[in-house]
Design a protein around this nucleic acid. Sequence first.
DNA 1: TACAAACGTTAGGATCGCAAACGATGATGG
DNA 2: CCATCATCGTTTGCGATCCTAACGTTTGTA
Lengths: 142, 142
Amino acid sequence: MALPDGFQLPTGFVIDRLMRVAAGRWTELYGELGIGKPALIVLVALATEGPLRQARLSEQTRIDRATLVALLNELESHDLARRAPDPADRRAHAVSITDAGRALLVRAAELEARDDFFAALTARERATFDALLGRLLAAHGG
Amino acid sequence: MALPDGFQLPTGFVIDRLMRVAAGRWTELYGELGIGKPALIVLVALATEGPLRQARLSEQTRIDRATLVALLNELESHDLARRAPDPADRRAHAVSITDAGRALLVRAAELEARDDFFAALTARERATFDALLGRLLAAHGG
DNA sequence: TACAAACGTTAGGATCGCAAACGATGATGG
DNA sequence: CCATCATCGTTTGCGATCCTAACGTTTGTA
């Protein structure tokens, strides 16, 4: 039993392997920011989607509600995000990013811009890659 | 403090969010295969890179040596991979995929082919996406 | 006014990465 | 030859994250 001719590696496998490579870089690159990858994901969602209640934030980021609690506690203690009572629903919290949080995102973007992880791609190819990623994410309710 | 005009979301963040969406699909899609995502990653590496000693396998897949031990135990118990003594180095094990392992990979590819995770992309766009992924992976020693 | 659902929170178990250590084997230099 | 160090697979412990289930509170609905 051999693999059939023209066997195509499932794309998911390739992305996963690429993410494992990137994971090492991530901690190395963003380590100096003092917060981890999930916290940055949350900040990105808050910066782009405005104030969100935690349930929506969990849907957007695909981070579990339970994990999100500890994450927001950490972000609040660093004054990077804020929980405020939602006037429309006393059960919910309106979570928003702070100015310090936005400043940290800008620093993170600068760090990634200096990184050469995508050096193998030309600027044009990278733009294509980003566009395709965005389409995929949008198609899945990102 | 607001985000600067034309602020570009770091690509790493976008990939991470996309992977979180895909992670849920993975378990759902490959659940019936009876093994998890890391085990499939190992099988892919073994199928494409031939017999590998565990140290090389760990480098290729970016799965920790320690985690790999338990993973190979599981794969061996299901007769999907084999550990054989390496004649050239009595410390090392030559790990290879079995016919059953290859058959499972073919099934996995069929499952992903039926999935519509990339339905938002045309066949041409998906080919471009795969090619760019492959370039990135190759550039990082995949 | 009951009853079900959603909200944030907490706790428990499972998985995985990372770091350190171990015995066995291999490679290197005096 | 041999002493030293590196590498191999393995085990163990710790920390981070995910998933599930439960809870009290608040909202929506029959």
